[in-house]
Design a protein around this nucleic acid. Structure first.
Length: 423
DNA sequence: TCTGGGGTCCTAGGACCC
DNA sequence: TCTGGGGTCCTAGGACCC
């Protein structure tokens, strides 16, 4: 048996903990550049604001209804997420952190402690709320896909009060719920698959569940066959309490304004290469390839469009920010074309491997100083703040930088941004 | 004026091997 | 007239997730 604990409107909930006056009000959290609404309070959802709606299109509605918009504060959300996971780990030895606001728990053998899975679910939900302030919903089922579906029910149907254990329902009750749920509510069924399923007359979860898996395989492929089996209670998607090593690392941002100047683009790519390398080193990995890409603004049809990217292979795996940045900037010079309005650029690190295993290059001797230098950089930035030292090629003014106009303090991770209470 | 970022997996087709 | 069988690896594109 699996449980899925999923925070309600996670980013909004994080903000509300430190600004209780936002409780009961329509609140949205915006993506980078304050571009789109990526988290919405229930009140905002009730006003019909869809996920990913561009903020500039919502401004009239916002004024009319007093919607509060906040910039993304990922430092805060990341820290709150860790706190929630800490509580979850008290309830099961096996926790899979699936995303910033969702974790699976394996419940095998734990039922005896609580009398029922539902009791465990309620205890966990109350504890997370009490200790972190974050409201979560809990879904329980014999497969991860069913736990997801149960979580959906826990949140949408008030009779469950935030915790839905499918195994506690009768066969008829389950059937009733499945018949009332749309196929699009199933984990792994996206927009394209929904269209195709509808065309085949498969509209509800009950329909999908009764479709023979071999037919799903033939029509959609092995992924949908698995989903079909999971809905029937046959567990096919593995529980991963130890996260497998990453295969690639990306750092990219849309610019705060259009960029035409090659030097500014170079600063941005250099900055992204730095960030990507930070992540790489945090994972104790090295990369053998770097991909760099640039894009114009696809929404501006009046502009000439240009999207291009390039893979640069490194002569040997590395985590040296100078080599990685050098490769990214080499690629940028190759793909840059003058005369376009660039909106976004990014750097991807490819062919990741563990630091220890490193095929040396035949044609050059190993750089003895590289790892010492990189460790020194990490040490300095770790002790004195993230951007104490950086590469000169990243620039200092960064006129292209991403915009955050409604940013809240990093309440839980910075001494100088701690919340204060009036009394 | 203004439209996010970071990932994974699967499949098909091409190139190549013996 | 007739042209095998069994593989691997790589890449691009699509679909999905939060």
């Amino acid at each position: 048996m699996f449980a899925l604990a999923d925070a309600n409107n996670f980013y909004v909930s994080c903000e509300r903990i430190f600004q209780p006056k936002l409780e009961g009000k329509p609140v949205v959290v915006l993506s980078n550049n304050d571009g789109c609404a990526i988290a919405r309070s229930n009140e905002a959802k009730a006003l019909g604001i869809p996920m990913g709606a561009p903020w500039f299109q919502l401004k009239d509605l916002a004024k009319k209804h007093g919607i509060v918009a906040l910039s993304s504060n990922y430092t805060l959300y990341g820290d709150m997420s860790n706190r929630v996971v800490q509580v979850l780990r008290m309830y099961s030895p096996k926790v899979e952190v699936y995303s910033i606001d969702e974790s699976f728990l394996e419940l095998e053998g734990l039922m005896g402690l609580w009398g029922s899975y539902g009791a465990l679910g309620h205890a966990l939900k109350d504890q997370v709320r009490m200790w972190t302030g974050i409201p979560v919903g809990v879904g329980i089922g014999p497969t991860k896909t069913l736990a997801k579906l149960a979580n959906h029910l826990a949140k949408k149907r008030s009779e469950f009060n935030g915790v839905c254990d499918l195994s506690a329902l009768t066969r008829e009750e389950r059937r009733g719920y499945y018949a009332s749920l749309d196929v699009s509510d199933v984990w792994g069924v996206g927009r394209r698959t929904v269209e195709k399923l509808r065309a085949l007359g498969i509209e509800t979860v009950d329909h999908l569940r009764s479709t023979p898996p071999p037919y799903l395989r033939q029509q959609f492929g092995v992924v949908m066959e698995r989903t079909g089996n999971e809905l029937r209670g046959i567990s096919c998607i593995e529980f991963e309490d130890v996260a497998p090593p990453k295969k690639q690392i990306v750092s990219s941002r849309a610019f705060g304004r259009m960029v035409t100047d090659f030097n500014e683009l170079q600063e941005a790519v250099s900055t992204y290469a730095w960030r990507a390398t930070e992540k790489l080193r945090k994972d104790r990995a090295v990369c053998s390839g770097v991909h760099v890409f640039v894009e114009t603004n696809r929404f501006r049809e009046q502009d000439r469009q240009y999207n291009n990217g390039m893979n640069v292979t490194l002569s040997e795996p590395t985590d040296d920010v100078r080599r990685i940045t050098g490769a990214a900037l080499y690629g940028l010079r190759r793909i840059f074309l003058d005369g376009y309005l660039y909106k976004k650029a990014g750097v991807m690190l490819l062919d990741l491997g563990p630091t220890g295993i490193r095929q040396a290059c035949l044609f050059r001797s190993a750089d003895q100083h590289s790892s010492k230098l990189m460790d020194a950089l990490s040490e300095i930035n770790g002790r004195f703040g993230r951007e104490t030292v950086w590469l000169g090629s990243s620039g200092t003014q960064k006129p292209w930088a991403t915009i955050f106009e409604h940013k809240t303090p990093r309440y839980t991770t910075r001494w100088d941004e701690l919340p204060t209470a009036d009394y």
